[in-house]
Design a protein around this nucleic acid. Structure first.
Length: 738
RNA sequence: GCGCGUUUAGCUCAGUGGUAGAGCGUCACAUUGACAUUGUGAAGGCCGGAGGUUCGAUACCUCCAACGCGCACCA
């Protein structure tokens, strides 16, 4: 019996032969589902909970190595806690990713010569949903291949029915207290995506451009955007600027401008920097944030100059209908011809705002949109966040800040806390409406002048739902509790919220982590998680970000095919300190495949040489030391994992198993087994088996497949599968034989 | 502009107040003995630069440089 089980070790470890079958055995055996584990007696009914949510991958295609790294880290922590006896839940899911998915599908149909408006809302959405479904299926398969011990019975999707209810419920309760409001404000318009986006979806790109100086009445004004200046009737200077002290606020003067004479009004405002340019500017409130603020302060009127497609409106006179890009030079020529051009600075460096998803240059526009008020006071009925009392007045910004300053949430690595606070301090109201079709449609209905906000459509005829959809991060913000059944009062919610940990990339600290803290704080009065572990990005061997355009994407599945999941996981963990980017090369993955095989051969040696070992034996002094050494390793590694120092734990295990156990202990054992006396031999057999089993347990979270496969062949009476074996604590030599 | 991070062997990275480590790569040798997906050994580093604290700094402090990142932004 034992002999046949050992036969597999006669050939090198072949991941392909074991991985799929093992995963199936775990999944079908219910080992990922905490309820089943309690039912089967593997987990105590009153065990402490440990829960994490999988950051839901976007259904925009396939998983990349970054996802693989995330899955590895989370699976290590989950398997570790499960083995420690906790009631452990890891919830999988996917994210509809609104703009990202919609623009992806738009690109696909564009190749077929079709635009979304040709299809219409319903047909287009059907197409997107089909694409999303296909991506989902691929992703789910990839998550399985990584060995992730997620509970598939609780799988969620940000756009499925329960999550839809959560989103609408959340929207309504925030609307009811005035934290969600509709406002006509300056927003970031993406002319290519034809939607508004939030401040966080903007990417600034440095660009060299021309800076123009024009005569504007008695003044010289500077601008980088002559094409917006048609209707500039306000000329602004600093109140203390001595050069312009003869002019008073509100004074008007007649000036000659692009399309003829007009009346200009003098405005004094401290926002103008006297050091910049000529210290004087005209303002375009409709297309500039700074100008808009100034206009608000002085109650000035603004006019739209550029339409939503980036073309000039009739206010531009002869230039109406031109694309702004083309119009600029023509306008400058005209001003030059009129003798109004003073100078052009050719080397002006400034940052251009572009849309994260489409790359288009953002055109600020004044539009009516939905916002979440982050600075507005409200009474929080219930709060468990230290520093925010139930029934006290607070703001969303304060909740987000206090959750971290109070220590209720710890961010690892700590330096990101500073970055987080900095972001909060600069945070403005969050624009949540989007003019795209894919996503949660805003739960507001209109009829004439009536407005209804609710979880379901209002009764009666003639109601029309708001055509806009919500920012995808609105639903993501609810993820820790929407996945647990909220707003229903479920057992899962009571058992698993707040979650223990959120593990995600530092690149979505603001997008997601902050929004989850906001949502959980408002709706539940709690933090969504106690720890945030931010991993780095996986880069190629040259340190470049992996991207389609660079063609340097490594498909994790390819690597798994070649080297096995365990090797890929180790390669992604080793050297990956929290918050640090990981450079990955195939060589490193290959190195860890060797390690899996090393373990395989250790198994062969140990099983062959301990087949006739007694259950117990008194240990020699030498072997007691070996046992103590292993105990120290257990203590060390356990502490490292508890502190999320996975790369350190993995490295210690790797060295112990290879350099200490294989190279030294096994080598020293050979003469003992060959020519040692019976007592020494038995002692060594016992301690070697013990060290071997402990090593398998310690390595299991990191390399689940090869360890489970080996463990399966170890003859132990009443053995459990390794995935639910008890994490080794310590085996003091003197407790073995009291 | 403000802030953060990084800079250690060819590459990727650990690390410590007492003049440096790992993996991979390279080279040499060994060996069918658990494992050739092996073993042993070697070559290879003024630990980014300058100054300071110290008996002593790669490690602590200051400044500088390069690279990367975040935020803000002046028309």
């Amino acid at each position: 019996m034992a002999d046949t089980r050992r036969e597999k070790f006669n050939t090198p470890y072949d991941p392909k032969k074991v991985e799929e079958a093992l995963y199936k055995r775990w999944e079908e055996g219910g080992f990922f589902n905490p309820d089943v584990l309690v039912q089967k007696g593997f987990t105590a009914p009153d065990a402490e909970s440990f829960s994490i949510v999988l950051p839901p991958p976007n259904v925009t295609g396939t998983l990349h190595l970054g996802h693989a790294a995330m899955l590895a880290v989370e699976d290590i922590l989950v398997r570790f806690e499960r083995m420690r006896g906790k009631r452990t839940l890891w919830i999988p899911g996917t994210d509809h990713a609104a703009i990202a998915t919609q623009s992806k599908v738009e690109k696909i149909i564009e190749k077929e010569g079709v635009r979304r408006n040709d299809l219409g809302r319903d047909a287009f959405l059907a197409r997107v949903n089909q694409f999303a479904q296909e991506s989902h299926d691929t992703i789910v398969n990839q998550v399985r291949r990584m060995g992730s011990s997620v509970d598939w019975s609780r799988e969620a999707y940000t756009l499925d029915a329960p999550r839809m209810t959560a989103v609408y419920t959340a929207f309504k309760s925030m609307y009811d207290v005035g934290l969600i409001f509709q406002g006509k404000r300056l927003v970031n318009w993406d002319p290519k995506g034809q939607t508004v986006i939030s401040d966080d979806e903007i990417v600034y790109k440095e660009e060299k451009t021309k800076f123009y100086y024009f005569k504007y009445g008695p003044f010289t004004i500077g601008t980088a955007r002559p094409e917006t200046k048609f209707a500039d009737t306000y000329v602004v200077m600093h109140p203390d600027d001595a050069r312009y002290k003869e002019y008073v606020h509100g004074q008007t003067l007649e000036i000659e401008w692009i399309n003829g004479p007009m009346t200009a009004t003098i405005i004094k405002d401290a926002a103008v920097n006297p050091e910049f340019g000529t210290g004087i500017m005209t303002i375009t409130p409709w297309h500039s944030a700074v100008d808009f603020d100034m206009a608000e302060r002085h109650d000035l009127h603004g006019e739209q100059i550029i339409d939503l497609y980036g073309k000039l409106l009739p206010v531009a006179g002869e230039f109406a209908g031109m694309k702004i890009k083309d119009a600029r030079d023509t306008i400058v020529e005209k001003l030059d011809a009129k003798g109004l051009l003073v100078e052009i600075d050719e080397n002006y460096m400034h940052n251009v705002a572009t849309a994260e998803r489409t790359g288009a240059v953002i055109e600020p526009q004044v539009m009516k949109q939905w916002f979440v008020a982050v600075n507005k006071e409200f009474v929080i009925p219930h709060s468990e966040i230290p520093g925010i009392a139930s029934g006290s007045k607070t703001t969303l910004k304060e909740i987000m800040r206090t959750a971290v300053t109070s220590g209720a949430i710890k961010i690892v690595p700590e330096r990101f806390e500073k970055i987080y606070f900095h972001w909060i301090d600069n945070l403005r109201d969050w624009c949540i409406s989007r003019q795209i079709w894919f996503g949660h449609r805003i739960p507001v209905w209109y009829r004439g002048n009536e407005l209804y906000c609710g979880v379901t459509a209002p009764e009666g005829d003639g109601w029309e739902q708001d055509p806009d959809t919500l920012d995808t991060w609105f639903s993501s913000g609810l993820w820790t509790f929407s996945t647990l059944g909220w707003p229903e009062k479920t057992n899962d919610f009571a058992t698993y919220h707040p979650t223990a940990l959120l593990e995600t990339g530092y690149d979505i600290l603001f997008f997601w982590v902050a929004r989850m803290i906001l949502m959980s704080g408002f709706h539940l009065g709690t933090v969504p998680f106690k720890n945030v572990y931010l991993h780095g990005l996986v880069r190629d061997e040259k340190g470049r970000k992996m991207s389609k355009s660079l063609g340097n994407i490594i498909d994790p599945i390819d690597m798994i095919e070649k080297y096995g999941t365990d090797a890929v996981r180790l390669a992604l963990i080793m050297g990956a300190a929290p918050g640090n980017d990981v450079k990955l090369s195939e060589d490193r993955i290959r190195g860890y495949k060797h390690f899996a095989n090393k373990l395989w051969n250790i198994a062969r040696f140990v099983l062959e040489n301990t087949a006739d070992a007694p259950a117990d034996a008194p240990l020699t002094d030498e072997d007691k030391k070996l046992s103590d050494e292993c105990t120290a390793l257990i203590t060390d590694v356990t502490a490292d994992i508890e502190q999320f120092q996975l790369y350190i734990a993995a490295e210690k295990l790797y060295h112990y198993v290879w350099d200490r156990f294989a190279s030294e202990i096994i080598e020293q054992s050979k003469p003992i087994f060959r020519e040692g006396d019976a007592d020494s031999k038995r002692s060594r057999q016992v301690v070697m088996r013990q060290i071997f089993i402990d090593s398998l347990k310690l390595l299991h979270p990191f390399m689940p497949f090869v360890t489970e496969e080996i463990y399966d062949a170890v003859p132990i009476p009443d053995k459990k599968p390794l995935i639910v074996e008890q994490w080794p604590a310590r085996h003091m030599p003197n407790t073995l034989f009291p």
